[in-house]
């Protein structure tokens, strides 16, 4: 009796039962993915971690030629008060010579589009495997390009924090920052 109600698939045609099997299977797969999502998403940064995402720094005490390290999002950020020679050196490099071409001006522009070539602000994390490059403290080796030198695998950065030599694939990242006054900068 039952067999008469089920259309036969003798010629390889899909039956109602095939359709139900595929539809049920597909729904189960969607359900499994939807259930997996909260478990995966749970590992993403929490709200309190995200809340720590901006800091304010008074740059007034940093003399010309000096640099400081501040902690932002658990990572070091370098703020360098560049000398006129530093700036000239950074601006005079041909873009074609750079592994990761970027103009110096683009790297010293804050989020209000104001260019301040004397202040270079970069995330102090080597783009190779995340070490902290040397060159911020007085007496640190600054590499062949007078910027930063990463001791882990020998990457060298210039006075604009751009990669010049070594295994790192990219320039030191420029965080989003804004000068709220001439001496106060908000990072993040």
């Amino acid at each position: 009796m039952a067999s008469s109600t089920i259309p036969s698939g003798a010629h390889g045609d899909p039956t109602r039962r095939d359709f139900l099997m595929v539809a049920t299977g597909a729904m189960a797969a969607v359900g499994a993915i939807a259930t997996a999502w909260p478990f995966i998403n749970n590992l993403n940064p929490a709200a309190d971690t995200l809340a720590l995402s901006s800091i304010e720094v008074n740059v007034k005490p940093i003399a010309v030629g000096q640099a400081i390290t501040v902690k932002w999002r658990g990572r070091p950020v370098f703020i360098r008060h560049r000398t006129p020679e530093d700036i000239k050196e950074a601006e005079s490099v041909k873009l074609s010579e750079l592994p990761d071409p970027e103009t110096d001006t683009a790297r010293v522009t804050d989020s209000a589009k104001k260019v301040r070539p004397e202040w270079l602000i970069v995330v102090g994390v080597c783009t190779h495997l995340g070490c902290v490059p040397l060159g911020t403290k007085q007496g640190d080796p600054r590499g062949e390009y007078n910027g930063w030198f990463c001791p882990c695998h020998g990457s060298q950065y210039d006075t604009s924090g751009r990669i010049r030599k070594g295994p790192a694939p990219a320039n030191l990242a420029v965080p989003s920052y804004l000068f709220t006054s001439d001496t106060l900068v908000k990072i993040g």
Binding site: I40, L43, N44, P45, A46, T49, S53, R73, G74, R75, V125, H128, L129, G130
Partner: peptide
């Protein structure tokens, strides 16, 4: 940071592994 070598999604994966913006 090895996972940041993966094109396009590498950095998001690393943030996801860390649960933040650095090992913390």
């Amino acid at each position: 940071n090895l996972f940041s070598a993966i094109p396009v999604v590498g950095d998001s994966i690393v943030t996801w592994l860390w649960g933040g913006f650095a090992v913390d």
